[in-house]
Simulated assay, not measured.
Amino acid sequence: MAAAKRKEGPTWLRRLDVAGRAVAAIGVGYVFASLATAVLAKLLPGGPIEATIAATTLSFAIYVTVVVWCFAEPKSWRLWAGLAGGCAALGGVLWIALILEPRL
């Protein structure tokens, strides 16, 4: 029986990688989705109520996309860099939008 052998690292490294991805998906993914929701609620056209409802509805799709990406990205450093950069960019856009018009 010639089964193809995969070269795997130590078990604790794989478990640490999965734990880090879970933290990124659950914690940082929530922060990312929250920032995206706030930015969308601020920038979408229409009244404040309609923009908030539309942004909140889109936030579910944003969060699921981030969670899937957290476990699909082959490199952990790219995952963390992308989430950190995305959160920083969304935070900056929200900050500028709130300075220009202080309605959330």
Rank of each mutant, 00 (worst) to 15 (best):
M1I: 03
A2R: 14
A3D: 13
A4E: 08
K5E: 14
R6E: 13
G9T: 11
G9I: 01
L13H: 05
R14Q: 05
R15S: 14
R15W: 10
R15Q: 13
L16R: 05
D17T: 06
V18Y: 09
V18F: 03
V18P: 02
A19Q: 03
G20L: 05
G20P: 05
R21W: 01
A24V: 01
A24N: 08
A24Q: 08
A25T: 00
A25N: 06
I26A: 10
I26S: 06
G27S: 15
V28N: 11
V28Y: 10
G29N: 14
G29A: 06
Y30F: 14
V31Y: 15
F32W: 10
F32Y: 15
A33G: 09
A33D: 08
A33K: 08
A36K: 13
A36L: 08
L40W: 02
K42C: 05
L43T: 11
L44G: 08
P45Q: 15
P45D: 13
G47F: 11
G47S: 15
I49C: 03
A51G: 04
T52H: 05
I53K: 04
L58E: 07
L58C: 07
S59Q: 09
S59R: 11
F60T: 10
I62Q: 09
I62L: 14
V64D: 11
T65C: 12
T65N: 02
V66W: 00
V66R: 02
V67Y: 03
V67P: 08
V67R: 11
V68N: 07
W69Y: 15
W69Q: 07
C70F: 00
F71M: 01
F71C: 09
F71S: 03
F71K: 04
E73M: 08
E73Y: 04
E73K: 06
E73L: 05
P74E: 10
P74V: 05
S76I: 00
S76L: 03
W77M: 02
L79E: 01
L79I: 00
A81Y: 02
A81S: 10
A81N: 08
A81V: 10
A81T: 10
A81Q: 11
G82Y: 05
G85V: 10
G86L: 13
G86W: 07
C87H: 13
C87A: 14
C87V: 05
C87W: 11
A89P: 15
G91F: 11
G91C: 10
G92Q: 12
G92C: 08
G92Y: 04
L94A: 09
L94T: 02
I96G: 03
I96K: 11
I96C: 06
A97I: 05
L98K: 13
L98F: 06
E101W: 15
L104V: 15
L104K: 11
